[in-house]
Simulated scan of single mutants.
Amino acid sequence: MTLMNAHPAASNGAGQPEHDDPELGTTVPEIGWPVGVVSERLGIAAPTLRSWDRRHGVGPSLRTSGNHRRYTELDMRRVELMSRLTAQGVPAQSAADSVLAMDARSIADRLTVNSATGADDELLPGSGRQDPEAIDVDAADLVESIVAAARALDPRTLSLLYRQVLRRRDVGRAWIEVFAPALRRVGDLWREGRLGVSAEHLTSELLQSELRAVVRANRLRIAGRPVVLAGADDEQHHLPLLALEAELARNGVASLFLGPRVPSEALVSALRESRPRAVFLWASLARPAVEPLWRDLGAVDWDLEVVIGGPGWAEGITVPDGPVVLTRVEDFGSAVRALTSSPGGLTR
């Protein structure tokens, strides 16, 4: 049967499209497969394949001389990866956007990773898997799906993806493996002019809502003296603080969230009124080593651990002699450990 590619392709002179075979070092005819063969080979129902083709553009790219469409090997790999992503809970349109944006090498690599981790069939309906910690959806796929949903300004898909991640990972893993990389990617695209500011705002606002939902869901478990969470006085980024609040709530630790841009005098006043056992301060923008906050901590007359995180803090910070202890943390996990094992607090 003579095949014709839907897009221009090299020909062997017999009307049959060709492609290079890197292993043989030769040019060989392209082979195409009908939907029934693909359905049987991949275990995907033919109506599903036709729906993905019609609705999402993931389908056959070859045509016969009789205008019948056929799947190439690359087409089948795309379909296979889309099947794995949707089985893992990624919405179909986001899965399609991801696989269509990948080249052949990326698709092959992703299929290899998913096969090695066994993260596909375990997530099929009726599989009987009940332990969400035993399910490990590939983080890179989720990041790409979040970026695709942001690009499409699709709030429903973004919310579903965020909830899926938070169901299957604790907040710390979700932040480190998925949320922070996705936010960086969206921010990079915005700075490059490839994504509108509306997409960046939508991505952040919906994530904020989902993280606060974690706090609400754990409210009855929260007890003890609170820790204070605040940003430096010119710090605008507060999603890391929200992620930390959610993870503390999941651990049953009470917190007082003051948010970003807290002036030093207001922070010290809040500390004196609430008398927390610990305070976490976040700074992504560069801070001076000497600033009024460190001097004003001299007013503290109870045991207080000051935990600082983020790349903005300078080296050589000192606090007044007394009951204040300063701790610098380098990552999310270290911050959680510091705040759940502070003097007078919980030890987990």
Rank of each mutant, 00 (worst) to 15 (best):
E210H: 05
L207A: 07
W175Q: 02
V186C: 09
L211W: 06
L195T: 04
E177Q: 14
E200D: 05
E177I: 08
L211G: 01
L189H: 05
V171T: 10
L195F: 11
E192V: 06
R169V: 04
I176V: 15
A174L: 06
R173H: 10
L189T: 02
V186E: 00
V171F: 05
L207P: 02
G187W: 14
W190G: 02
I176G: 01
L166Q: 01
L195D: 01
S198F: 14
A182L: 12
T203P: 00
F179N: 00
A174G: 11
A180C: 10
G196R: 11
S204K: 04
S209G: 11
E200S: 07
R184E: 12
R194K: 15
G187N: 09
V165H: 05
A180L: 15
W175E: 06
D170N: 15
L189I: 08
W190K: 06
V165S: 03
V171A: 01
V178D: 01
G193R: 11
T203K: 00
D170V: 09
I176T: 15
L211P: 00
E205V: 12
V197F: 13
E205H: 13
D170K: 04
R212T: 09
A180N: 12
S209D: 12
G187L: 14
E192G: 10
F179H: 08
L195A: 04
V178R: 02
A199I: 09
R173E: 11
L166Y: 02
R212V: 06
S209N: 12
R169G: 02
L207D: 01
E210G: 03
G196A: 11
E205T: 07
R185W: 12
L202G: 02
A174K: 01
R167A: 10
G196T: 12
E177N: 13
E177Y: 11
E205L: 11
L183S: 03
A180M: 13
A180Q: 15
F179Y: 11
G196L: 03
V171H: 04
L183G: 02
W175S: 03
E205G: 04
R163P: 01
L211C: 05
E192I: 09
L202E: 02
F179W: 06
R184G: 09
E177D: 15
D170L: 05
G172F: 06
A180P: 00
R184H: 14
I176L: 13
V165A: 07
L166C: 05
L211F: 13
R212D: 08
G187P: 04
W175I: 01
A199H: 05
R185E: 15
Q208D: 07
S209R: 13
S209W: 12
L183N: 03
L183D: 01
G193W: 09
G172Q: 13
I176Y: 07
E200P: 05
R167M: 09
E192P: 02
D170Q: 06
A199L: 08
H201C: 07
L206I: 15
R163H: 04
P181F: 14
L211T: 01
Q164P: 00
E205P: 00
R185D: 12
R163A: 08
V171D: 01
E192A: 15
E210D: 10
I176W: 08
A182S: 15
